[in-house]
């Protein structure tokens, strides 16, 4: 699937819920399904700054595509990083760099998460873009 197709399906999934509790239940589920980072990378070098809870992110280039793994000590944060992983993992660096991130507004993530958490979310996106930039060369 293309990035756009994946984003659309996530937006559709989220729009099924009116209640914020249900959306959080979904994020928590996503957190539990997150592809976990290899323990050797779960260190300060892979830590993303700007999140109140700790998030580690690793990226690997295979056959021209980037595969992300991550972990966090908070499950909601892990849900958010996994949501981004679902969108970006298995895509080419060029496609990731060209991606439109407005779907975050559509599912209300940016708008409804607390400012600190929201900054964390933006830091996560920024870090993924940074990996894509490096691997695009």
């Amino acid at each position: 699937m293309t990035i756009k197709e994946i984003q659309d399906s996530i937006v559709e999934e989220f729009s099924m819920f009116d209640d914020w509790m249900d959306r959080y239940v979904m994020l928590i589920e996503m957190g539990k399904e997150c592809p976990i980072i290899d323990p050797q990378y779960r260190n300060d070098n892979y830590l993303i700054n700007g999140c109140q809870s700790r998030v580690w992110l690793h990226a690997e280039l295979k056959d021209g595509k980037i595969y992300f793994t991550a972990d966090s000590d908070a499950v909601i944060t892990k849900g958010i990083i996994n949501l981004l992983i679902k969108v970006f993992s298995g895509q080419t660096p060029a496609d990731i760099l060209a991606a439109d991130m407005s779907f975050l507004d559509e599912i209300g993530l940016k708008e409804h998460l607390s400012p600190t958490r929201s900054n964390g979310l933006l830091s996560m996106v920024k870090q993924m873009m940074l990996y894509a930039e490096i691997m695009n060369k």
């Binding site: 914020w20 509790m21 959080y24 928590i28 109140q52 809870s53 000590d73 908070a74 499950v75 909601i76 944060t77 607390s114 958490r117």
Partner: peptide, 20 residues
């Protein structure tokens, strides 16, 4: 359970506490 997760969820229930 991470305190931040707990604080985020109970915030949605109208309860303001501090986490961290």
């Amino acid at each position: 359970i991470h305190p931040y997760d707990l604080g985020t969820i109970i915030d949605k229930m109208g309860v303001a506490v501090r986490t961290g």
